[in-house]
Design a protein around this nucleic acid. Structure first.
Lengths: 248, 248
DNA sequence: GGAGTTCTGTAACCTGGGTAGCAGAATCCG
DNA sequence: CGGATTCTGCTACCCAGGTTACAGAACTCC
């Protein structure tokens, strides 16, 4: 992407905020920008497998999820929710192999896109990039670890609470309602939330109703907010480490 | 490690076989060897958290598992089984942060060990290493993905079959018994196997007995072998993709 | 504006898998 | 070698969560 492009400044700014690039020097960023072209995908766009293997994208705007489905039952698990600042497909970028997973474009998505082999070469030619790249990969691996841990060790309502807690905005309290907004997943259907915690719609609805009754969350179609952050964290078992000695 | 060390040749050879280093040129390997010193841990050694954050190890011999435990129930999930040729701790190497997981030394372990910051610097100074390093990380991420997928979408006996299939030796058929040997997990207790698939001992025993009755596996204490590889793969649902059209 | 679609809410029923318990076999170690 | 420990085998019982079904609310789009 050339500096003359009308999207250049905005793209560069998003890149600077991305964990993939935060803190890198300006010159390196500008060099990196030259790799990319801007792409847009409409909601529901089918991405071919070529997209995941042969290209590497950094999301500027919008969301996509990467999902796996059981061939017989149709049950699904979302392994990745990719939003602004995230790289896609990281795994294929790393090893050059196809990624056995289904991408779903959730919104209008705007990307910076380049060929994967070009990105790999650039990474090798610019080892300074390791400074952000390797920690970013570390973080992605930690997310996968947490998903496996939650699936193996925690019940569904705990997993749901943890999911919401992951995406709640701690710092902003909407003034008129005193609720904590939720980002990235705030407009998800119960079925989509279910796929993120390895469950099914009716179970998620059951638990959400319970959380609503307990005054912890509030929701109506396409709108999820948190009313009681402390209680949510309790449900998520996040404070148990501190309070283990106070076990009831 | 200096070339004069009595362990040098053997260590170098293991390194050459490791997916972390396979195919790298000899000179780079030798340069890398200079980073490391040899360490040994007895079975059951407690590794401090310093070990995972401040040091990076390549396993030459022996096994360790990385496990997480539910604080209340005591239930556990093994996220990593680390054997010869594997790096430990990869995640801390990537991002320099502590890894919230418990290492368990399963055997006498022999490692090549260096400080993590030194390893990170070496990686940055030798971008040729990306050729093996990045695909290795990609493979580790794929393993985590598969674990999450299995936990979310498959029942316990399927997960068990998949686990065994992952570690069965396809190429070698023990001549006197015509069984397929299993490596790395062949001597695990039922409880340890259970932790690898996110279940509990009695359930694993129940399923193993079933697999034994079906003539798929054979086992007695500390010894697990596969008798019918095709049936095991069926149980693992691995051929379902091909046979979907033949659905009963 | 209305038909069609998607989402939410709820209930009944079933089951895979987990807990708890006990006993015997195998292994370890002093 | 024998006591202690670990592992395996098995059973009874219970329940979280999944499937199925139905109805109403909300949203979309022509």
């Amino acid at each position: 992407m050339l500096p003359e492009s009308p999207f250049y400044q905005n793209s560069l700014q998003t890149l600077q905020q991305s964990p993939l690039c935060k803190g890198l020097n300006r010159k390196l960023l500008e060099d990196m920008m030259q790799l990319f072209t801007r792409r847009c995908w409409g909601k529901g766009t089918r991405l071919s497998e070529q997209q995941s293997k042969s290209y590497f994208h950094i999301i500027l705007h919008g969301r996509l999820k990467l999902t796996r489905m059981h061939p017989e039952t149709g049950r699904a698990i979302t392994l990745w929710l990719i939003g602004p600042g995230d790289g896609y497909d990281i795994i294929s970028l790393l090893d050059g192999e196809e990624h056995d997973i289904m991408p779903v474009v959730l919104d209008e998505v705007e990307t910076l896109t380049t060929r994967a082999d070009i990105a790999r070469k650039w990474i090798t030619d610019h080892p300074e990039f390791n400074r952000c790249f390797l920690p970013y990969i570390g973080e992605q691996m930690r997310r996968l670890e947490d998903l496996s841990t939650n699936l193996a060790l925690h019940d569904t309502i705990t997993r749901l609470a943890r999911l919401i807690l992951q995406y709640v905005d701690l710092k902003k309290n909407s003034p008129p309602t005193n609720k904590y907004p939720v980002h990235l997943i705030n407009d998800f259907s119960h079925e989509t939330l279910a796929c993120m915690v390895g469950s099914v719609r009716t179970v998620i609805n059951r638990h959400l109703q319970q959380l609503k009754k307990d005054g912890i969350v509030d929701f109506h179609r396409g709108h999820l907010t948190v009313k009681n952050l402390e209680q949510l964290a309790l449900q998520a078992g996040q404070f148990l480490h501190r309070k283990q000695l106070d076990k009831k």
